[in-house]
Design a binder for these strands. Structure first.
Length: 489
RNA sequence: CGAGAUGUAGCGCAGCCUGGUAGCGCAUCUGGUUUGGGACCAGAGGGCCGGGGGUUCGAAUCCCUCCAUCUCGACCA
């Protein structure tokens, strides 16, 4: 086989299949190639690997800072919820009943075949539900923390995991167990609670757009898409490269639904006993899936600098001559970048430089720096931006690079957002009638349609949704007389 | 839970139709030559062929039956 033949056989892209060829398979391939996560031995669950978990940690850190700025305190409640307690709110349990894992025994023992099994003598008098969300247990708990209007508002957040027994799972996008934060705030008045719902949604939009560089549409959920038990649900909807929607964060005005079922009461300013008004709000590891499907390309992941574990990866090109001095040069560069607040690392693995390069391309590190004898002798570095690809490869003085590194990262961050934003905006199609929407989706249209809100709920509308597996995504804040419709994850 | 597909080495796959001692590529390990966008040569290690049952002298291969995974639905963040 000649070198040319071999070259032709080699895939042109690091990821196969390409997005165009098969988007769902491409997604799986990126998760694997970037070493983010894998399917767990536990059905429907994922093992989040260190490089993937770092993305979550950085998102988590940014979000945690922001919610604390608005007076939210972190707390923790148990993963097991007494069945009777979660069953107290009718709409809520109707929404979750079909996907609850239930704990019924408290001990294992060997059965007749000598196999370990739940001990029949250890059956619980009351089963526990593995939390699918914590409105009920938090409500039942905090009612004892609140007596007076002076105890309000009470703003609590829990970082944790929840479990929903899903029929069909997909890494990050829909797993039986996922990580998230769930905020649960309690207020004196309905107005305060409604404002809080909006405020927390704004924080989600901020995190998604300015940290993860995922453009979102803020809006209200339609009646049929609301959280079970909510009076109003707000959402931040993102659009993936295949045109499907990803609900990326939700914030709920729960009215007095849960304060009545849990009896959360307080003595008001004029001495009356009143039920409180509550909100809840959540953002999950699903957002990592959104990050992949918003920014990834046929060479793998692209990570926005603000949440990248490694912002600049330095790859030494060693030939055996001046190896020690090249390594020193790289380490000095790393230190200089760190002193500029840049998260940098030198790839010292015993691999060929070309292999390292591809590895970091697939992992989406924002900036790659190549350093060999040539650069070292000239006091230079060769720099490639992941967002712009290999065409962006340039050689510049090392001092100049270090001085500009932070602003280059800022530029990558905003370029990734603007690119994604334009792509989303170009794929929101205004239609004046159901037929126009049908034409769009029948032609395999990629994206959302935006139509008059009054069309929602009509027979024609429902038929359209059935025909193309569509759902109303939201009633956008900026066009409150319209509804956005699309396929979704 | 419906429809379709797939389970063979760490990963990706061939072999199955037409039963006869387990193969290929990548990865791993050894040695050597190399080195600026996925190197090359030589050698080596690594498998209850998803589980269980059946047919057969003999099963990765045929039959039954579980289980798991993936894609598309329904349900959902």
């Amino acid at each position: 086989m000649t070198a040319v033949q071999k070259q032709q056989q080699k895939p042109k892209t690091a990821i196969t299949p390409t997005r165009e060829e098969n988007f769902p398979e491409w997604y799986q391939a990126v998760v694997k190639a970037a070493d983010l996560a894998e399917n767990s031995l536990t059905r429907g669950c994922m093992n989040i690997k260190p490089y993937g978990f770092a993305l979550w940690e950085n998102t988590q850190r940014a979000l945690d800072d922001k919610i604390k700025e608005v007076g939210v305190q972190n707390a923790y409640f148990p993963v097991l919820i007494p069945l009777s307690l979660i069953a107290k709110e009718a709409d809520h349990i109707d929404g979750f009943a079909t996907e609850c894992a239930v704990v019924t025994h408290h001990r294992l023992s060997k059965n007749a075949e000598g196999k370990l099994a739940p001990d029949p003598d250890s059956e619980l008098t009351e089963p526990y539900v593995v939390r699918p969300t914590s409105e009920t247990i938090i409500g039942e708990s905090v009612k004892n923390w609140i007596q007076s209007y002076r105890d309000l508002p009470l703003k609590l957040n829990q970082w944790g995991n929840v479990f929903r027994w899903e029929m069909r799972t997909r890494v990050f996008l829909r797993t039986a167990e996922f990580l998230w934060q769930e905020g649960h705030n309690v207020f004196e008045t309905a107005d305060e609670a409604r404002e809080d719902m909006k405020k927390m949604l704004d924080i989600y939009a901020d995190i998604l757009e300015n940290w993860m560089a995922i453009p979102v549409i803020k809006g209200y959920k339609t009646e049929d898409e609301k959280f079970p038990g909510a009076v109003e649900t707000m959402t931040v909807e993102a659009m993936m490269q295949d045109g499907k929607a990803l609900q990326s964060g939700t914030s709920h005005f729960l009215g007095q639904t849960f304060s009545k079922s849990a009896d959360i009461k307080f003595q008001s300013r004029d001495g009356n006993i009143e039920h409180a008004w509550t909100t809840s709000w959540g953002l999950s590891t699903r957002s990592i899936g959104g990050l992949i499907m918003t920014h990834g390309d046929d060479d793998g992941l692209k990570v926005p600098p603000k949440i990248a574990q490694i912002q600049v990866i330095i790859i030494p090109f060693l030939k055996g001559d001046n190896d020690d001095s090249i390594v020193d040069y790289c380490k000095t560069l790393k230190q200089n970048l760190k002193s500029q607040g840049v998260r940098a690392d030198v790839d010292m693995r015993e691999l060929r430089a070309g292999d390292k390069t591809w590895d970091w391309v697939k992992k989406g590190v924002p900036i790659r720096v190549e350093v060999g004898g040539r650069e070292m002798d000239a006091g230079q570095v060769t720099v490639t931006r992941r967002d712009l690809g290999k065409e962006s490869k340039t050689t510049m003085s090392v001092d100049e690079f270090v001085a500009q590194a932070q602003s280059t990262l800022d530029d990558i961050q905003s370029n990734m957002f603007e690119t994604a934003k334009k792509s989303v905006m170009d794929r929101i199609h205004d239609v004046d009638a159901i037929d126009a929407a049908r034409t769009f989706f029948a032609g395999n249209g990629n994206g959302f349609v935006r139509m008059d809100k009054t069309l929602w709920g009509t027979n024609e509308f429902n038929a359209l949704c059935d025909e193309f597996s569509l759902s109303p995504r939201c009633i956008p804040l900026d066009t409150p007389d319209k509804v956005i419709v699309g396929k979704s994850y």
